[in-house]
Amino acid sequence: MGFKLLSKLLVYLTASIMAIASPLAFSVDSSGEYPTVSEIPVGEVRLYQIADGVWSHIATQSFDGAVYPSNGLIVRDGDELLLIDTAWGAKNTAALLAEIEKQIGLPVTRAVSTHFHDDRVGGVDVLRAAGVATYASPSTRRLAEVEGNEIPTHSLEGLSSSGDAVRFGPVELFYPGAAHSTDNLIVYVPSASVLYGGCAIYELSRTSAGNVADADLAEWPTSIERIQQHYPEAQFVIPGHGLPGGLDLLKHTTNVVKAHTNRSVVE
Score class of each variant (00 low, 15 high):
Lys91Gln: 15
Phe168Ile: 06
Tyr175Arg: 00
Gly163Asp: 06
Gln49Asn: 12
Pro23Glu: 10
Leu5Pro: 12
Pro170Val: 06
Tyr68Thr: 13
Leu24Gly: 10
Glu44Trp: 08
Ala218Gln: 14
Pro107Cys: 05
Ser264Met: 12
Ala19Trp: 15
Glu44Gln: 12
Arg120Leu: 02
Gly240Leu: 04
Glu145Ala: 14
Gly32Glu: 10
Val124Gln: 04
Leu10Met: 13
Pro170Thr: 07
Gly2Glu: 15
Ile20Gly: 15
Thr261Leu: 13
Gly210Ala: 07
Ala95Ile: 12
His252Cys: 00
Glu80Lys: 09
Val37Cys: 08
Thr14Arg: 07
Gly163Arg: 05
Thr261His: 15
Val257Tyr: 03
Glu150Val: 04
Arg263Glu: 15
Asp183Gln: 01
Arg206Ser: 15
Pro190Trp: 06
Pro107Ser: 11
His117Lys: 02
Ser38Cys: 07
Glu101Asp: 14
Arg142Ala: 13
Tyr231Ile: 03
Gly177Ile: 03
Gly122Arg: 07
Gly169Lys: 04
His117Cys: 00
Asp119Val: 05
Val67Cys: 07
Asp85Cys: 00
Ala98Ile: 09
Ala234Tyr: 04
Leu47Gly: 03
Met1Glu: 04
Thr253Val: 00
Ser181Trp: 03
Glu157Ser: 12
Ala165His: 12
Glu80Ala: 10
Ser161Thr: 14
Ile151Glu: 02
Ile104Asp: 01
Leu173Glu: 02
Val237Lys: 00
Ile58Asn: 05
Ser113Val: 06
Pro244Ile: 09
Thr93Ile: 04
Thr134Phe: 01
Ser16Pro: 12
Ala213Cys: 08
Arg76Val: 09
Trp55Tyr: 08
Ser62Gly: 14
Val108Gly: 02
Val75Ile: 08
Lys91Asn: 14
Lys8Glu: 14
Ala144Glu: 01
Tyr34Thr: 08
Pro244Ser: 05
Asp214Tyr: 06
Ser205Met: 09
Phe168Ser: 03
Phe116Met: 06
Val11Trp: 07
Ala51Pro: 04
Glu233Arg: 13
Ala129Asn: 15
His57Asp: 03
Ser38Glu: 11
Tyr196Lys: 00
Gly158Val: 04
Ser7Glu: 10
Ala98Ser: 14
Ala259Arg: 13
Ser16Val: 13
Thr254Val: 14
Leu243Pro: 10
Val146His: 13
His252Met: 01
Ala15Tyr: 12
Ala215Arg: 04
Thr253Leu: 00
Val265Asp: 12
Leu96Tyr: 01
Leu127Lys: 02
Ala15Val: 08
His115Gln: 03
Gly105Val: 07
Pro239His: 00
Phe168Leu: 08
Arg167Met: 12
His260Met: 06
Trp220Met: 01
Ala218Asp: 13
Arg46Ile: 12
Leu97Glu: 03
Tyr68Met: 08
Leu9Phe: 10
Asp248Tyr: 09
Gly72Lys: 03
Leu159Ile: 10
Ala213Phe: 09
Leu82Met: 10
Ala129Val: 09
Gly65Leu: 07
Val126Ile: 08
Glu147Asp: 10
Asn255Ser: 12
Lys8Phe: 09
Ala87Pro: 03
Ala59Met: 05
Asn184Ile: 06
Gln228Lys: 14
Tyr188Cys: 04
Ser193Trp: 09
Pro138Trp: 08
Glu147Trp: 15
Leu106Pro: 06
Arg128Phe: 08
Leu97Arg: 01
Glu39Gly: 14
Trp88Ser: 00
Leu97Ala: 01
Thr36Ile: 15
Ser160Cys: 06
Ala218Ile: 12
Tyr196Asn: 03
Leu24Arg: 11
Glu219Arg: 07
Ile238Val: 10
Trp220Phe: 05
Asp248Leu: 07
Pro23Tyr: 11
Tyr188Asn: 04
Glu157Leu: 12
Val212Tyr: 06
Ser264Ile: 12
Pro170Cys: 03
Leu143Cys: 04
Ala200Val: 08
Ala259Cys: 05
Ala192Ile: 06
Tyr48Asn: 11
Ala209Glu: 07
Gln229Ile: 11
Ile74His: 01
Leu250Glu: 02
Trp55Thr: 00
Ser162Asn: 11
Arg46Asn: 07
Ser155Trp: 07
Ile84Thr: 03
Ile238Arg: 01
Asp216Ile: 07
Val67Ala: 15
Val171Ser: 01
Thr93Pro: 01
Glu44Asn: 13
Ala179Glu: 05
Ala111Tyr: 07
Pro170Ile: 05
Gly177Glu: 01
Asp214Asn: 09
Gly65Arg: 09
His260Cys: 09
His117Ala: 00
His154Gln: 09
Ser27Trp: 10
Val166Phe: 07
Ala111Leu: 06
Ser62Phe: 06
Ala133Tyr: 10
Val37Ser: 15
Val112Glu: 04
Leu159His: 07
Asp164Tyr: 07
Val45Ser: 06
Ser223Gln: 02
Asp118Pro: 07
Ala209Pro: 11
Ala111His: 06
Asp119Met: 01
Gly78Ala: 09
Tyr188Val: 03
Gly148Tyr: 03
Gln228Val: 13
Met18Leu: 12
Thr253Cys: 00
Pro152Lys: 00
Tyr135Lys: 00
Ser62Ala: 11
Leu173Asp: 03
Trp88Lys: 00
Asn149His: 10
Asn184Lys: 03
Val54Phe: 06
Pro35Ile: 08
Ile74Lys: 01
Val146Phe: 14
Ala213Gln: 13
Pro138Leu: 09
Leu6Asn: 15
Asp77His: 07
Val257Glu: 03
Thr153His: 09
Thr182Ser: 12
Asp77Trp: 09
Ala133Trp: 08
Pro190Ser: 08
Ala111Phe: 06
Glu147His: 15
Leu10Lys: 13
Val166Gly: 04
Ser264Lys: 13
Asp64Ala: 13
Asn149Tyr: 09
Gly89Cys: 01
Ser139Trp: 11
Val146Asn: 13
Ala234Phe: 03
Pro41Ser: 13
Leu173Ser: 02
Gln228Met: 14
Ile40Gln: 07
Leu47Ile: 12
Thr14Asp: 10
Val146Ile: 14
Asn92Ile: 04
Glu44Leu: 09
Ala200Ser: 06
Tyr135Thr: 00
Gly131Thr: 06
Ala129Pro: 03
Ala94Thr: 14
Gly65His: 10
Cys199Asn: 02
Leu82Pro: 05
Ala133Phe: 09
Asp85Leu: 00
His230Gly: 08
His252Val: 01
Ser193Cys: 05
Phe236Trp: 13
Ile58Gln: 06
Val194Asn: 02
Phe26Arg: 14
His260Tyr: 09
Tyr48Gln: 12
Phe63Gly: 15
Leu173Met: 05
Asp52Ile: 09
Glu233Pro: 04
Gln235Ile: 09
Ser161Leu: 12
